[in-house]
Structure formats: structure tokens, C-alpha cells
Design a protein around this nucleic acid. Sequence first.
RNA 1: GGGGGAGUAGCCCAAUGGCAGAGGCAGAGGACUUAAAAUCCUCCCAGUACGGGUUCGAAUCCCGUCUCCCCUACCA
Length: 843
Amino acid sequence: MSEYDFATIEARWQKTWLEEETFRTPGPGDAGFDPSKPKYYVLDMFPYPSGAGLHVGHPKGYTATDITARFKRHRGYQVLHPMGWDAFGLPAEQYAIQTGTHPAVTTEKNVAKFRGQLQALGFSYDWSREINTTSADYYRWTQWIFTKLYERGLAYQAEIPVWWCEALGTVLANEEVINGLSERGSHPCVKRPLRQWMLRITEYADRLLADLEDLDWPDSVKAMQREWIGRSEGAEIEFALTDADGNALGQSFTAFTTRPDTLFGATFCVLAPEHPLVAALVTTQQRSAVEAYVAQAATKSELERAELQKEKTGVFTGFYAVNPLFPPGDARRLMPVWTADYVLMSYGTGGIMCVPDGDERDLAFAHTYGLEVRSILDDEGRLQNSDFLDGLAKAEAIPKMIAWLEERGLGQGKVNYRLRDWLFSRQRYWGEPFPVLHELDAAGEFTGVHKVVDAQDLPVTLPELDDFSPAEDGEPPLARAKEWLHVVDSDGKVWRRETNSMPQWAGSCWYYLRFLDPHNQEAAWDAEKEQYWMPVDLYVGGAEHAVLHLLYARFWHKVLFDCGLVSCAEPFRKLVNQGMVQSYAYRNKLGALVPVDQVEEGEDGSFVDTTTGEKVERQTAKMSKSLRNVVNPDDVIRQYGADTMRLYEAFMGPVTASAPWNPRDLPGVHRFLQRVWRLFARGIAAAAEPTVERAMHQCIRKVGDDLEQMGYNTAIAAMMEFVNVATKQGQPLSTQQARAFCILLEPFAPHLAEELWAQLGQKEALAYAAWPSFDPGQLLADTVEIPVQVNGKLRARAEMPADADRDTMEDLARAAVEEHLSGDVRKVIVVPGRMVNFVVAAK
RNA sequence: GGGGGAGUAGCCCAAUGGCAGAGGCAGAGGACUUAAAAUCCUCCCAGUACGGGUUCGAAUCCCGUCUCCCCUACCA
């Protein structure tokens, strides 16, 4: 046995695993399936295979799930651990537009690269289950699920103002536009009315909210989803509109409010600039001012509106709203109606009643324009000057006011959501075609009738095109696929295919289900398999998917549940967000960032810009090309091997924590593997050495406990500790110890573990070897040193048997601190095996 | 402004309310070596951001303050 030759070892075992299909996992109905085993489904958020390949951030989560997957196999679970590709999407299409390379070609190339990189890291995926959202075999079922949504009335078309991104040539969902810029690429977007497909996710808002409760998810993600759904209880109130003299205009508007009980304090109303009644009813006198205001509000992006939030602006419309609480003639009855851009057309009804005494924004607006403020809340927040609500707290006042309104037909209780229906169509080529046909009349015009394609006629495959670019008018590229576009049915009726395509989220909404049964040609998945494997036991991915992907997938899953197609209401039982792998960045005195490759560390630990000689400060930042601090996993593997890479990723800290990639720490974990190699190179001892044996049992327990809780970093520390003890002790390990250690090491450094296991002459596959057990009697030393405190202060240490009972401990401890116990001993606290504390009365 | 999370040694990080240190990096010394690297051994370093509170006992629980990260933001 010579050197630790990781390159040879890793290549050998990766080849073996692939050739022997070591990690092929049988499910119900498959040969080799053992129904008596418990199941464990551990899933990574599958990647978009970009041209850049993997960066070191990807493997952080993948390493975590792989360690857990391997650990669970040793624990006797049937482990489902699959990988696939979320391969529809803009980058491949943009590349196609620029170069003419078909997105499928780009995708295939990128997938090959990603697969190779993942395999080079020795992940124990069942590659026989690999899926790709862009293969017709897969999107056939994405389309099929869409037909289920359609049949249940959850998919509909609407002509709505949507975010149109000129640069990307497509519409985007609200969630994909941030402050008027596209989430991807930060291109400006504008609102534009277009015919779109929508999914009625709002129908599931309550269930999506309620079912969060029982999920083992990070609080932050649950909080984000709750906020996104944005349930708020209140009432809708209808306000009749009049002219300045109180003459009815024959129109009314509805306002949503969470505080209907404050209606007595409503002194004015505001409609969003886009509200149709603003233009319809504005008085001649106010018309020019209002039109000017509306026009300039329209040119403001959401970004600008948000930035200007300190100062509220608005214009009086000239008409009034009736406060129904007050009789004609009462001065409080007529409330002036303003238009202001702090009211958004897209939330609630686009119009509000304003209660300056109850709402900060209304108060600010009232102050700016000298509008009336009527006091209706006392110091304790109880209603006053409010007739039948006087003295009531809001909890009692709200239902009372709602009842009052309902009796008179003026309004009703209402739950409002921030969540909007999901804009589900895109004007792009590289996405799933909709399985929808639109009927045409003899003249070739739409009749307005549409239907979904029959299940047996799926998939609707993507047609070949020469030009993938979107048209200026928003007409999708699929409209240019002349031969594909029209379908003639058996009655000779002509139908035109839907030319929109689905958004990238579609494929990832259900991929975890296809993994259960990826080659099924008759169904999307088999019911028995679904019942066995679902739900996903552990789902690991980035926090950036906290809302969109996870909300959409939950929505689809609930629809499938309602269809009786899945057996559980929630797909992902436990969710973990892995921390970001950051990198170092350097900032000079001017605050500018200095690329990493022109900074050197000085003797005193300071950092110097080598081009200027100036001192710079180190900080952590996201990896980015511009900072030149991106670390490439291929380089790391070449230099240290995959096992070192995996070990380092897992050793950086808790899986949920972000930490900078520190190249200086890599040799540390690499050295550990070398020490393991050298320890095994000593050969095998005939008998176990007691110190090492004890350390072994402690290590088995610690690694097992830590892995149950995803404490990868501390589990590695425990193995290091064991190797240090064994190395120092000087003897070889016993056969039992060597075997046990191989199993402990395998989840983390599987190639090295397999190599050592093989050298031990083991024939059984290491990956499925049973986790070693420990002897609790071996965990404690015979004697322990127990701290003895007096009034909480450490006064002495007492040597005593590890299993001493309370009385013995107290006696031995008392002897050790005799001189400190002059006063009354009022209380003695004994923690068996841990410590003794004497509480003495102060003198 | 709202929400989520984090502050422990020069650095990354450990510590069911019970001796602040498991592990790694960096640093110092020694052994081995003709020398260096590698390896092995030994050592050094904080009282847990700050201020209160609960407790026999607090890094850990509670309250307040500060700093940093992430998310969100006129949502009526």
C-alpha cells in the first residue's frame, strides 16, 4: 500500500458504481423490491443545466443529500435519490436566437456536462431515473396535468394587462418582475393587455396557507409564503357617488378595508389613477388636473412610485362618495373622492375609504392636502364618536359594523388575498406547448370555442423552427410553424393550436412524481409507487425558491390530490435551504471592489492590492465573474479529489449556514483523508486496543446522532477525533474497527471508503452494509473528573467513578470543597455524570 | 417600516441550561531528514457583540440596544 492516490481510486469506483448500477433503486413492482424496508425519499432541487456548468454552490446541497441518502441506506432504508434536468427556459433559447443552434442541442450538451460533473463527485443518484423536462416523454405528462387543471376549471384565458418585457420578448408573471425590471437580466418591463392563460391558484389560497402549519420547513420560508398569499380579513363596502351638491351620479365604487369599524372616521376616498371611474366621472373643472396626474402616474414605473413613497401626491376628482352612516344634510355624509398613486389598481378593488385617524398613509395624505381628520379612536384604541360602536375594541366593533352593512346591503365581510391568479403563458419557443385547440370558422376566424387535446393524442410536440425569435407584436414563434399550427378533426373541422407555451415553472411542479416511475408509458406515475414513496422526506435547495417554485408545486400537488391522483395533500415533508457558498472579495479605500487575483496577503495578515500597493479590506460576497472569485469544482477535484471536495463542502459549517469558500481550508480536510489512508496502511491488529475501542464506540454514536440531524460538520469532526486518537495510539485497527470506520466514512468520502473496504477483503457492497452498533457501556471512561461548584462558582474537580450514584457523587464532591462549605449548605444539585453544585447561605 | 436569521480564539466553526472547545485553518516549538517538503508530537490563543432579567447555574431562556446577512415593502 503506497500513497493515497485519489484520482485512480475515484475513477475506479465511479466506473464500478455506474457499471454495476449500485444505486439503482427498485420500487413497488420492480425486481428486487423489498416491501418490508422503510422508504426514504431524499430530493435535490434539480438544476437548470446552464452552459457554465456546476459552480461550487451547487454541490453544497447535493453533498448534504448524498450523505443523508448513503447514511439512510446503511440504516436499512430503501432510498430514492434521483436527479434530473429542468431544461426548458430562456438561456438556451436566447443562445438559439443569437447563434441559430437549436435549444435542444444546447440542452443536450449542457446536460452531458452537468451529468459528468455530478458523477465526478460520486453522488449516489439512481441514474436510471434521470429525467429531462424537455423530452416529449416528460412534457407529455406536464401537458396531461394541464388538461386536468383545464377540466376542473382552473385554467382560463383572460385579456389582461400583463408585464411585457421587450428585451426578452415575452410576458412575465408578477413574481418575475421586480420594481419594473425582469428578475432575469433586469430588463425594463411595461404593462400591456394581452390574451393569456391563467391558473386559478387563488382558489387554493386558504389551503395553501393552512397546510403550511404542519410542514417541517424553515420558519423563514413559511413566513414568506404566508406573506405572499397575504390573507387579510375585512369587508367590502359600496359607496354611492354624487356631485358636490349630493346629487346621485348613478355610479358607485367598492372599497376593501380591514377596518370597516372605522367607517365613522372616513373623511375622503381615494381611487387608483387607473380606476375606470376616475376618467368617467371627473368633473369638467378638475379634468385637466386629473388627466395630467393620471398621465404622469402611468409613465412612472413601479420602481419610481416606490421610491417616491415619502411624499404622497394626488388630485381631487370633483365628485363625492356617500358615507352611508350619515343622513342627508349631515356634513359628514359627503366625502371628496381623490385619485392618488399610493392606491394600487392591482390590489383589492383599486379604491379605498380613507380614515386619517386610523391609518398612517391616509393621515399623511390628509395633512398634505388639508383634508378633514375626525377623531374616532381613543388612547386605548377603542372606538369613540362612533355611535353604536362607542367604547368597543376593534375585535367586537368589526363584526358589528359588518352586520350593520350587511343588513342594509351596503357591504359584506370579505377575505382578500395578495396572491393573484398565476399567469401561466409565455410567448416563447422553448417551453411546453399547451395541449389546447381553438376552433376556427369557415373564414378561418376564431369562434371562441376551445378544447384540450385528448390524452391519447399527447404529447403535442414542439415543432421544428428556423427562427426562434419572438415577434414584435407579441405573437409567439410557434405561430410560424405552419404545418403544425392547424389540425383537422374527423368531422373536417379545423382547429388552430394554442401558440403560447408554458412557463419554466411548469416542469418543476411535478418532477418529484415522475421520479417515482420515470419510464411509465401508460401513466404519469403508478398509483402503488406513489403511495409507497410519497411524500418526499427531505427536500434540499436554495432559499431563492422559497415562494415561487414551492408555492406552484404545492398548488399542483393539491389539484392532483383533489383528482385522487396522489395520496397526500403536501408533497415535501421536510425542507432545508442550504446556505450560500460565498467567496472573498476585497474593497479598497474608495469602496471599489478589487478582483481577487490582484490581491495578496501580507506578512501581518493584511491584504494588499498588488497593482497599486494599497491596502484593501477583505469581506465576503457572492461569487461573481466580475470579482473573479468564482471557484470551479473541476479544478478542486483535479487537485484534491472528489472526496476532499465533498468533505470540505460538508465541513464548512452547518448545511443551512452561508460561508465563504476558503481555499486555505481544503488541505485540512485532504490531510484527514491521508491520515485515514495511513492508519489503514498499518494493517490489521489481532485485538482491539481499549482506548481506540472506546473512541470507536463514541465515534459511532456521535456520527449516527449527528447524521440524523444533518450535523455533517460535527460528524466529520468526530471522525477526525477518532483518527487522531487511533493514529497517536500507534497500533493498527482491529478488523471490526476498520470495517466500522469504513461504513462511517462512506457517506462522506465514498470512494476512499470503498477502496479501504475492498482492501479489507470485504465482498459485500459497502453502500448497503449495516450501520455499526455501539456498546453504551463503552462510551464512558471508568472514572471521570467532575466539576464541583459552590454557589455556581467552580471550586474544585473531583475524580470519581463514571457511574457513581448521587450520594457517592455528593460525598466525594463535599470532600473536595470542604474549605468552601463553612456556611449552611442549603441545597445540593447533583447532575449524574456531569457536575455537583453546593448552594451555601451567604454569611 | 415589516418579517426571518446570525454575532463564541487571528479565521471557519463546536458546546440536551451544567468544567466555554470537538474539529479544521493559521501561528510557535520540537522529532525525523544532509536539507527541504511531507509526516509525527507538543504548545499558544477567547470568557461568548453590549446592557438588564430569570436560575443553584446562562453562549444557550426572557427583555432592551448595537452590528451584519437574507426576504419584503404605500397591500388599504
